[in-house]
Design a binder for these strands. Sequence first.
DNA 1: TAGATTGTTAATCGATTAACAATC
DNA 2: TAGATTGTTAATCGATTAACAATC
Lengths: 213, 213
Amino acid sequence: MAAQNQNKVSLPVIKRLPKYYRYISDMHNNGIVKVSSSELARMMGTTASQVRQDFNCFGGFGQQGIGYHVDVLLSEISKLLFSEKNLNAVLIGTGRLGRAISGYLSAEARGYHLMAAFDKSPDEIGRELQCGVMVQDVAELAAFCAAHHPDVAVLCIPRAGAKAVAPTLVEAGVKGYWNFSHYDLSVDYEGITVENVHLGDSLMSLGYRVRND
Amino acid sequence: MAAQNQNKVSLPVIKRLPKYYRYISDMHNNGIVKVSSSELARMMGTTASQVRQDFNCFGGFGQQGIGYHVDVLLSEISKLLFSEKNLNAVLIGTGRLGRAISGYLSAEARGYHLMAAFDKSPDEIGRELQCGVMVQDVAELAAFCAAHHPDVAVLCIPRAGAKAVAPTLVEAGVKGYWNFSHYDLSVDYEGITVENVHLGDSLMSLGYRVRND
DNA sequence: TAGATTGTTAATCGATTAACAATC
DNA sequence: TAGATTGTTAATCGATTAACAATC
């Protein structure tokens, strides 16, 4: 829960971006070229007012009397969500959840680069994940971070484990944690972004937030 | 996004309950018997005001001048979160993510009973999950729902698949969807609760919400 | 009693919705 | 031009925070 309200765009707006993105890219794929705020609102389950307010946070890219061009919306929102640079991520914990998420991070999620994966179990260490990344011993995490400076750590381990690796990560200068299984590191480390995410939306939107801090 | 604001307790409050629960059960396990709103606020990363407001939604269970008894808090919040009756859940999709979640649902999450799991892949059908549940053909989903009336469906399949099974589930009377991988069934089915969840908190809090609709 | 801390009402803050002039 | 729809300001709504009397 670090400070991140310097910029004018509020968190609720940011959290809606991925949903906009999905509808708009669907439309784009279906060859739809134009959409009005009220059509988008119906799809999103909100009001036309909110749609216009949201888009205007970033500088109105619609046309009065006409609506919004799907391709303009798509490119503007893509820019916001995916930015220029991938986030370098390390995965910690390669159990069932970790493996599922490694697949998501490397194949489906945009804006991420999975640098490495770590586990403490001898059964896991040395194994190759489906995405091609080799599982390393978590004991080497500090050295790895010192050498390669990941941006975010994706935690797929129980709470006790998360509490144990957190100091290492913080000392190594990792600034973001995406926590898929637990919750409450939030208060222990000031100035660090700890978020509980689910697949799909949050990953993208949080990526955006972090880059805009 | 069904209507669920009949009751006085707001969604933000409900979403905080699992986090309260975790801190309070930690304290309980450590033998701490008493806590003040300001101590809890510090742990939660919020204000003492908010803590008191939150607890008072459910009828003040503190003592003026003293604070809150940890065991009273724990039992009150447990009652709210876990209620009397488990939610009967079916899992749809037993890929990596689905398997991870089946383990969570059957072992860690309170308030759920995993009745059955479905997949469309012949490789999956007939396999037994680690939790002992047998994977069935998704073609049998409608019949299963008609016979056993699950409360919620946990979707761990791609969006196209989710869109395909949704009508079956809706027609079978399933009222809640916990969607771990995608997002936007929300608008298509009025009166149905579709939520995107992450492990841990949301499952519990959503359980609460559904039971209180 | 004095100090502490709740329960609860009032004030503030922020987000959503409504309204409407600008303009395509 | 008339109709449609945005951009933007104002009004509403809800959640958080502050204040303080009640009371242990």
